[in-house]
Computed example of a mutant assay.
Amino acid sequence: MDNRIITMICCKSFHARRCLMLYQLAFPEAEISVVPVDCYGITRDNWHMQEYGVDRVFGELARCGNQFVGDIKEYLKCQK
């Protein structure tokens, strides 16, 4: 019997990395696929061509770092 957990996540394209990281942290045994949705016209090919896209992508990058600091520190404690 196959007990794999397969999850598909649909989210805004610029939010996809943080979403994947969060689900992998919460469900390490799951096979996760992310389906990024083109939202606000921001894509991986054009985000850097408009100020709004730059703000959204780098804002998301900052949230990635801030959100996982505590989780990573907790992980390090468990490894000792």
Rank of each mutant, 00 (worst) to 15 (best):
K80C: 04
I72Y: 11
G53R: 06
C10R: 08
R17K: 13
Y23E: 00
D71F: 10
E29A: 14
Q50P: 01
K77F: 14
E29Y: 10
K73N: 10
Q24L: 14
G59D: 02
Y40R: 14
K12S: 12
G41W: 06
I72S: 07
I42P: 02
M8V: 13
R18I: 09
N3Q: 08
G41E: 08
Y52R: 11
G53P: 04
S33I: 13
D45W: 05
I72H: 07
Q24W: 05
E29H: 07
L22P: 01
V37C: 06
Y52E: 15
V54N: 09
D38W: 06
D38F: 08
A30R: 12
I72D: 07
L20Y: 13
I5P: 00
Y52G: 03
A16W: 01
I6S: 12
M1D: 10
Y23N: 02
Y23W: 13
N3F: 09
M49L: 15
T43D: 04
F14S: 00
R44A: 04
I32N: 03
V37S: 13
S33M: 12
M1G: 12
I6Y: 07
N3T: 06
Q67W: 12
E29K: 09
Q79A: 13
L20N: 06
D38E: 14
V57T: 10
R56C: 13
Y40D: 14
C11E: 01
A16L: 03
L76A: 11
C64A: 05
Y40W: 12
A26L: 15
G65A: 04
P28H: 07
C11F: 03
G59H: 04
M8D: 09
H15P: 02
E60Q: 09
Y52H: 09
V54C: 12
P36H: 03
G70Y: 08
L61C: 06
L20K: 15
N66S: 14
S33F: 12
D71E: 10
D2V: 00
R17A: 00
P28I: 05
K12Y: 09
I72L: 14
N46K: 08
C19T: 15
V54W: 08
L22A: 15
E74T: 13
W47H: 01
D71S: 10
D55E: 15
D38K: 07
G59P: 02
K12L: 04
E51C: 13
A30D: 03
Q67T: 13
L61H: 11
C64R: 01
G53N: 07
H15Q: 10
S13P: 03
T7K: 10
I6T: 15
V34P: 05
